[in-house]
């Protein structure tokens, strides 16, 4: 049930009331912007974890 991590991506990306705020800012970016940009690599990493757990080295 490692695929629960994929569901987590939906939660992170769609939590609009949580991330619709300006503070705290990072490198001049309001929270709204740096948070959503950060979700991109986090999402990629979560998919990578699922891939590594599920992959058993079958053919391409």
């Amino acid at each position: 049930m490692i695929r629960i991590l994929l569901f987590l991506i939906f939660v992170l990306a769609l939590a609009v009331p949580f991330f619709n705020r300006a503070a705290p800012a990072l490198f001049g970016f309001p929270f709204f912007y740096w948070y959503q940009i950060l979700v991109v690599p986090v999402g990629s990493l979560l998919i990578y974890v699922v891939y590594r757990v599920e992959d058993h080295g079958e053919a391409e």
Binding site: I9, A13, L14, Q36, I37, V39, S44
Partner: peptide
């Protein structure tokens, strides 16, 4: 941003 994050799962 959320749009092009969610296409991947």
């Amino acid at each position: 941003m959320p749009y092009t994050v969610l296409i991947y799962p």
